[in-house]
Design a protein around this nucleic acid. Structure first.
Lengths: 138, 138
DNA sequence: CCTTGACTTAGAGTTGACTCAAAGGTGTAG
DNA sequence: CTACACCTTTGAGTCAACTCTAAGTCAAGG
């Protein structure tokens, strides 16, 4: 299977602009056909998907470029590749933990507001509770 | 308890620059003492912490400003406040789900690489599985 | 033939959230 | 007295990752 830029754009939900931008950046460089049209291979598509996933969890294009270099080198740098992945995984896990913590805070706050809406009148106490008095850890 | 800008900066891990920037933006506006020094109240600190938490999960300063307006209005817009919170919560939950999905992908990839490092020789199959890369010449 | 989708270069503009700089001035604790 | 933390204004700079524009050319399909 091979794709032209418009097709790949649809598949990856990246814009054509972005795809050309990635090419300029050396991150995703398709072959060209006789008419100089970009032809993305199946491999390119998978790599594009990978990019989308990784940047979706906060990996920078710079890091993706580094990863790409390693991945394409003949020197079998699998340990390095794994190290990058593990490092990023750790970051993502930390992010998840932080998000979950903040989710709890939000849920508490929401509950408090709802209680208040349902007639609790102790506004001062309420405000203190909701906006932080017992959410102060760290 | 009251804090000067340097103290609050330490507590919140925001820079003094940022705190002044937030003031300019109307997001966190402390009182001043007779010498025109910013004096952050306990409430201000709590609000600052809240800002840190929320922006840590991707809420924009714009949204935080809207939240602040609602929160400070006398018109008891608690439903609206809750709506904002719930909306943001939904976003955060979606983000967590996405992150977890990508975590799985990464873990699979890491396992594959490790298997390969430990002597599996089916490079083509492996590469295709991991990134869709195969060893066809490019 | 005409539309569609592709191509080019080069550079400018956007966004959000800072971040810093210059070049002063003031107030207070030790 | 001196150091230090604080204050001011205005505006410029930074960063990543796009996003778009102009102004043109080109090739294939219905």
């Amino acid at each position: 299977m091979a794709y032209r830029i418009g097709e790949l754009a649809k598949l990856t939900k990246l814009s054509e602009h972005t795809l050309r931008f990635y090419e300029k950046e050396g991150l995703l460089v398709p072959k060209r056909n006789d008419s100089n049209i970009r032809v993305y291979s199946e491999d390119d598509r998978l790599w594009a998907d990978f990019i989308v996933h990784m940047k979706g969890t906060g990996m920078s294009l710079e890091d993706l470029k580094k990863y790409k270099v390693l991945r394409e080198s003949e020197s079998e740098n699998y340990e390095e590749l794994v190290a990058i992945l593990v490092h990023h995984k750790d970051n993502v896990e930390a992010k998840i933990a932080e998000y979950q913590h903040n989710l709890e805070l939000m849920n508490k706050k929401i509950d408090m507001y709802r209680q208040y809406i349902n007639g609790n009148d102790e506004k001062d106490l309420y405000q203190r509770f909701v906006e932080g008095k017992n959410t102060k850890n760290e």
